[in-house]
C-alpha cells in the first residue's frame, strides 16, 4: 500500500483487496495446495467426458474385476466397466449440485441472518426458535425425508441442500451482524434515517461478507459429504451414472477378492474435500476469521 491520501486508498481498495486476499491464500502452502486441488477437480468435472478413455457405462464381460493393466489403468469393476473413466467422471454430479446449492444457501441464509441481526425483536425470537428446531434434527433425516417424498433428481437435491444448509448460515450471519450493529457507523446510518435495506446493503453486508465467504467454503465441503454419503447409502445418484459414493458402496462387496475399485474414488473424493477445506482454512486465516468457532455440521 502506498502512503497516499485516504481518499485515494478508498477508491482503489475494492479490486486490490480481492487480489490481495487471493495472493494471501496462495502464499500459504495449505492455500496453494487446496486451491490447486479444487481447480483441478472442477476442470476435470467440466472436461472429463472429452478425454475419458472408455464409455462410462460400457460393460466388458471378459474383464470383470480385472486388476489394473495396460488397457484399464485402474482395473475394472464388478460389471467390467473401466474404473479410470468412472472415477474422473464420478464427481460431476456431486460438484454440479453442490456448486449451485452452496451459493444459494449462503445467499438466503446470509440475507435472512443479517436482517434478523439488524431487526431483532419478536420476529427474530420466533425464527431463531425454528432455526434451533431444524438444527436439532440430524441432517441425514431431513435429507432422507425430502428424498423419499420428492425423489432424488438434481431438481430436488439442489433446493433441498440449499434450504437445509442455509439454516446454519442464518446463525452465523446473525451473530456477525449483532457484533457490528452497535458500532458507531451503523448508529450513524440509523440516525441519518436510512432504511433497513439501505443499512444492510451499505453498512452491514461488506462487514459480514468475509465471515460468509469462509462459511460458504465450509458449507460446500459439508454438502459434498452429504451428497456422497446419500449416494453411498443408495439414496442419491442412481446407476449407471458414475458417482464416487456409489462406486465405493459397490466396491465393498468385493473388497476381499478385488480391493482396487475402491482406491481411485476414495482418493478422488478425499482430495476434493481436503482441497476445499485447506482453501477454507487459508481463506479464514487470510481474512482473520476464527474457523474453529463454527458449529458441528
Amino acid at each position: 500500500m502506498s502512503d497516499g491520501p485516504a481518499t485515494l486508498v478508498a477508491t482503489t481498495a475494492r479490486p486490490s483487496r480481492i487480489a490481495s486476499v487471493i495472493r494471501e491464500v496462495l502464499s500459504r502452502p495449505s492455500g496453494f495446495i487446496g486451491l490447486f486441488l479444487v481447480i483441478a477437480h472442477v476442470l476435470l468435472a467440466l472436461f472429463s467426458p472429452f478425454f475419458a478413455p472408455f464409455d462410462f457405462k460400457a460393460m466388458n464381460a471378459n474383464a470383470i474385476l480385472s486388476p489394473p493393466d495396460a488397457t484399464h489403468w485402474l482395473g475394472t469393476d464388478q460389471l467390467g466397466r473401466d474404473i479410470l473413466t468412472r472415477t474422473i467422471m464420478g464427481g460431476r454430479q456431486a460438484i454440479l449440485v453442490t456448486a449451485i446449492a452452496t451459493p444459494l444457501a449462503v445467499a438466503w441464509g446470509g440475507l435472512l441472518g443479517i436482517y434478523l441481526g439488524l431487526a431483532g425483536g419478536r420476529l427474530d425470537d420466533i425464527l431463531m426458535r425454528v432455526v434451533d428446531a431444524f438444527l436439532a434434527l440430524p441432517w441425514i433425516l431431513k435429507m432422507l425425508l425430502m428424498i423419499v417424498t420428492f425423489g432424488t433428481g438434481i431438481g430436488v437435491l439442489i433446493p433441498t441442500l440449499a434450504f437445509f444448509y442455509g439454516i446454519p448460515v442464518i446463525r452465523i450471519a446473525r451473530a456477525a451482524t449483532q457484533n457490528i450493529v452497535a458500532r458507531d457507523f451503523v448508529l450513524a446510518a440509523r440516525a441519518r434515517g436510512h432504511s433497513r435495506v439501505s443499512i444492510m446493503r451499505r453498512e452491514l453486508f461488506g462487514n459480514v461478507r468475509d465471515a460468509l465467504m469462509v462459511e460458504g467454503a465450509m458449507r460446500w465441503s459439508w454438502m459434498l459429504l452429504a451428497f456422497t454419503s446419500l449416494s453411498f447409502l443408495g439414496f442419491g445418484v442412481s446407476p449407471p451414472t458414475p458417482d464416487w459414493g456409489l462406486m465405493i458402496a459397490d466396491s465393498r462387496n468385493f473388497m476381499a477378492i478385488a480391493p482396487w475399485p475402491a482406491f481411485a474414488p476414495v482418493i478422488a473424493l478425499s482430495s476434493l474435500i481436503i482441497g476445499i477445506n485447506l482453501t477454507a482454512d487459508a481463506l479464514a486465516k487470510a481474512l482473520g476469521i476464527d474457523r474453529a468457532q463454527a458449529a458441528v455440521h
Binding site: 465441503s221 456422497t228 454419503s229 453411498f232 465405493i248 473424493l269 478425499s270
Partner: peptide
C-alpha cells in the same frame, strides 16, 4: 484434524 473431520465417515470406514 482437518482430514479427520471432513473426509466422509463412509470413506474412512471403508479404508
Amino acid at each position: 484434524a482437518i482430514f479427520a473431520m471432513t473426509i466422509p465417515e463412509f470413506v474412512t470406514a471403508t479404508v
